[in-house]
Nucleic acid binder design. Structure first.
Length: 273
DNA sequence: TTCCAGGACCGGG
DNA sequence: CCCGGTCATGGA
């Protein structure tokens, strides 16, 4: 039974919290022993769980924020109906039903995907967690906000040494400084067309096509972006026509990408790393 | 020991 | 334009 303070935020068909949190788009939601998840976004804490076909959560005064965060105004069934071919994509879309592309904070997304490069997901999570614990704000015992760019900008590479993020430390600092100084302005990016915003974020050191696309998709919710990483390269080579152009997938290409990534990693990847 | 991970960058051909 | 080497780290 939902507790007195919990409300139903979605049904379990339209929002699968396990798939959504584990599909590789975010790094900070934690599974708890009882099957619920707890996470922080924009300095707000949420515990959410599946209960009798519904997704319930204690949203407090932030129901609107979380409704938006989970992108509940988008019809994913209609979007997924566009992924009819090839057969492999159809399989991935069916397998990933319930995944939603979260509307994450731009800075957290940019920083997290800078860390993600040439790295594996468990270690990305460890680095991001350490970053938050060291320089975020403790909102509740053991729960930290993502540190602001202003907080990170004045730090040195040595200050980030405990992260063991390797050569990515300088990239993190460069990005934090660009945001803190206003060289990179997320409000400005929101007003730009995709190509322009893409070019702007790529000016940062350590941000190439792939990281920029992840930022656009997860941080700016440009659902047409199609990040290509090693998993996607393998899947494209194995299951799609030669020289396949993902732009044919249209306005929701990024969602197709997420279905493929999740399927490839959980079904085809021998080890979940 | 070597290979790999949601890459980016730089040099040379 | 494409290619190989390099970057730092930890797990398999």
């Amino acid at each position: 039974m939902p507790t007195k303070t919990e409300t139903i935020i979605a049904n379990a068909d339209e929002l699968d919290i396990c798939k959504t949190f584990e599909c590789g788009q975010c790094f900070r939601w934690k599974a708890e022993e009882n099957g619920s998840y707890i996470g922080v976004a924009a300095g707000k804490i949420l515990r959410v769980r599946s209960e009798g076909g519904n997704i319930v959560a204690d949203c407090g005064d932030d129901a609107g924020f979380w409704h938006d965060y989970f992108d509940l105004d988008t019809d994913y069934v209609v979007a997924s109906s566009l992924f009819a071919e090839p057969e492999y994509l159809k399989t991935c879309a069916s397998y990933g039903a319930g995944i939603r592309i979260l509307r994450q904070e731009p800075w957290e997304t940019l920083c997290s995907f800078i860390i993600s490069q040439c790295n594996n997901i468990p270690r990305i999570k460890t680095i991001v967690d350490t970053l938050c614990a060291m320089y975020g704000e403790e909102l509740a015992p053991g729960l930290f906000s993502f540190p602001t760019a202003d907080r990170l900008a004045p730090l040195s590479e040595n200050d980030l040494a405990p992260l063991h993020s390797g050569y990515r430390a300088q990239y993190i600092l460069d990005a934090a400084r660009a945001v803190a100084e206003g060289t990179l302005d997320f409000e400005e990016l929101l007003g730009m067309d995709s190509a322009e915003a893409f070019a702007s974020v790529k000016r940062l050191s350590g941000v190439g096509d792939k990281v920029a696309n992840c930022f656009m998709l997860y941080g700016l919710h440009r659902m047409d972006r199609f990040p290509v990483d090693v998993w996607m390269k393998r899947a494209l080579k194995a299951h799609f026509p030669e020289n396949y152009d993902p732009t044919v997938l249209g306005d929701f290409a990024g969602l197709a990408q997420q279905y493929i990534f999740y399927y490839a990693r959980t079904q085809e990847g021998a080890i979940r790393n």
